[in-house]
């Protein structure tokens, strides 16, 4: 049967539109639910008092420090590894294996990273259950994602830019530093923004490596245990009886806001690099 072109055009438009609606409905609904129930509880006291006074301040500090620490670790390591793999590594069997391994690493369940972190950082390196152990574990979990997105971003910089720069007597490193990297930066930062969101919300990797059920004081150094928002949320909603729903939603909303705040820095950086790139 032949459908006339105009009809098929409208039909495909309708289907695409409906699928998009289906895709964003749950997200909108979750946002709506969290904001509606969370906002009334989002008071200064709730955000800034200690746990024993019914606040979540230690968990906010905990999540914030862990996320910032792991981004500080994973961003340079991931980007430099991507630069090496993309710009310098010879295309032989070994690099192909490494690339394959990196892609596969992204598919490992996060709880496995948690156990890995427990055995390597907490026990073997004797870092204990601490911010640094948690941050390192999360870094290793996010490394494949950062490397893959960074490599894609580097690949998107036309090869002709590199050749033109090399033909002017610039070294390979100068070419990477002044031409390739600045043009790949917006793409790399997009990957970083997504990573920040994922790191902030993960519970399993920090379950054994950083998070504490209850700490009466704020962390003194990166070698202290901390409370974190996702773990706190999980504990209070499953293990503690008679917790008001508004507290849970307040915590969830705070987590969302923290993710957005940290991502904002990356978004601003991305804007900066986009402005400076004159296509």
């Amino acid at each position: 049967m032949k459908i006339n072109p105009k009809l098929s055009q409208q039909l495909s438009y309708c289907i695409l539109f409906l699928v998009t609606i289906c895709a964003i409905t749950p997200v909108v609904f979750i946002f709506f639910l969290i904001i509606k129930n969370g906002v009334p509880n989002l008071t200064i006291k709730f955000l800034t008092s200690m746990t024993k006074d019914g606040g979540i301040f230690p968990a906010i500090i905990g999540t914030f420090t862990i996320v910032v620490c792991s981004i500080i670790i994973v961003f340079p390591v991931g980007v430099f590894a991507a630069i090496y793999l993309n710009e310098y590594a010879k295309r032989n069997l070994l690099t192909r294996l490494i690339k394959l391994a990196i892609v596969n690493l992204a598919g490992i369940p996060s709880v496995v990273y948690g156990l890995f972190g427990l055995s390597i950082f907490v026990m073997f390196c004797k870092l204990g259950v601490s911010i640094i152990s948690g941050a390192l574990t999360l870094s290793i979990m996010e490394l494949p994602v950062i490397i893959t997105t960074a490599r894609n971003a580097l690949n998107n910089v036309p090869y002709s830019f590199r050749e033109a720069s090399l033909a002017l007597g610039m070294s390979r490193w100068q070419t990477v530093k002044y031409i390739v990297l600045p043009n790949a930066m917006p793409g790399i930062l997009t990957g970083t923004i997504l990573s920040i969101a994922r790191i902030s919300g993960e519970t399993a990797p920090i379950l054994f490596t950083a998070a504490a059920f209850y700490v009466p004081h704020l962390p003194h150094s990166i070698f202290d245990q901390v409370m974190t928002l996702p773990y706190h949320l999980y504990i209070t909603s499953t293990q503690v009886p008679c917790v008001s729903k508004t507290i849970l939603f307040g915590t969830a909303l705070t987590l969302l806001i923290i993710v957005l705040t940290i991502s904002l820095f990356a978004i601003i950086a991305r804007l900066y690099f986009r402005r400076h790139r004159k296509w």
Partner: peptide, 16 residues
């Protein structure tokens, strides 16, 4: 390459 430089078939201005 500083002494023997090169120009390519397609114009390759940098995005600056």
């Amino acid at each position: 390459r500083r002494r023997i430089s090169m120009l390519f078939a397609m114009p390759t201005p940098f995005p600056m």
